[in-house]
Amino acid sequence: MNVAPGAWRYAAGPLLAAPFGFFVHPLAGLGLFALGGFVLWFFRDPERSTPPSGVVAPAHGKVSVLRKEGETVRLGIFMNVWDVHVIRSPVDGQVTDVEHTPGAHRPAFSKDSDRNERVHVRVAADADDRAPPIQEVTMIAGAFARRITPYTEASNTLSRGERIGHIAFGSRVDVVFAPSVSLDEVQVSPGDKTTAGETIILDEAEPDGDDV
């Protein structure tokens, strides 16, 4: 099983303590071993099969936000503790900025989460100089998520479905589409389940407004 970077930092403690826990009580040893195993499972990083076309979901979870904000559309995907927390790029493109914004740690599904700690990954045109259909991916901390780990930085070139970060222990990921994308062009609705790097959230024919 592949795991995200940092997994062993969280799992090593309970796994190393488990043998000593058996000397205290068998249940203590089993509990520590189970905790370490759960942490590794939580940080699992399965391979994904990215479709040949289309803008793909950045996160594995449930669509919790879909709204118009001024000239742009925002799509938010909430990840609970059972979801895979490795974040993937929805598009090919060039990273122009990775910005960390400090903030609160409210539940990621609440309205107050708009003020939570977050990391913005902003994207510009790819090598073909094609305007991307999204402006940024935002990784948002939740009530228990205290660490957002981006895997990319400014000037990096991204491929669709590529891993761009990880959020530990519950969170939300938002996509801000380009102004040319309208609300009714988005291919998912609130309540829909998504798989990072696989679920199409916008048809490839829509990115720069030439076909609409």
Rank of each mutant, 00 (worst) to 15 (best):
A34Y: 10
F33M: 15
T72R: 15
F20H: 01
V81G: 08
R48N: 04
P26T: 05
V91N: 07
R115P: 00
S113N: 02
V73D: 07
V55K: 11
V81N: 07
K62R: 15
H25C: 01
F43N: 11
A17E: 04
K111T: 03
V86H: 09
V81D: 09
R44I: 05
S110G: 08
V65G: 03
G70D: 12
I77Q: 10
G37S: 13
F38W: 15
G76M: 02
I77C: 10
G70V: 00
A17H: 01
L66K: 14
W82M: 14
P46C: 05
F20K: 02
A108K: 00
S113M: 06
P107Q: 08
P107I: 03
R118Y: 00
G36Y: 08
A57P: 06
G29L: 07
P19R: 07
G54D: 03
R48A: 15
N80H: 12
V91L: 14
N116T: 08
P52Q: 13
A17W: 00
F42I: 09
G21W: 08
W82Y: 12
G37L: 14
G21Y: 10
D92R: 07
V86P: 02
P14H: 12
H120Y: 09
F33T: 01
F23C: 10
L40S: 02
A57D: 11
V119F: 04
